[in-house]
Amino acid sequence: MPLVKDGAPIVDPYVKVEDDAALPDGPVLVSAARLAAEGEAVFAGNRPVGVAWPNDRDVAELAPHLPRLSLVALAFPKFRDGRAYSQARLLRERLGFTGELRATGDVLFDQLLMMTRAGFTAFEVKKAADAAAFGGALASYSIFYQPAADGRTTVREARAAAAAPAPVRVAAKG
């Protein structure tokens, strides 16, 4: 499955490690269960650690681990199951996670822009053709009506900028 990170195809450096296997050198991806069970021990050694977090578990549980996690992989078991969009925004906007946020599962072309807006930066794209067309997916819109995790300029901000200098409010509303 092609991995696209920050807009470019890359080879996944993370090794997915079974719960009962020893952690190898280099970047590892562990399960939520392992992180919960082993806690600190997972971070022993200097390797980058990522966690695969299911979409029915509260991301607030991740808060104590976030400073040491370099990757959180969220799941789209079906592309119609949109729970991970909320999880992504909470990780970025509330919990302040700045590492790699990866979309996994049923990751398709027509959802890539929304995932990006929700804060994802890496994508295990299901179809090779979609991965190749990644840039096009993000370029399909330039107008965004609401603030999200991506910092794109919203219509409200763009209108305010276009109207500058800001109109002076003569009288407050009664």
Partner: peptide, 13 residues
């Protein structure tokens, strides 16, 4: 309408 149009979090409810 504006807030909900293509809302990136609430399109696959």
């Amino acid at each position: 309408r504006q807030w909900s149009t293509l809302h990136p979090e609430f399109t696959y409810l």
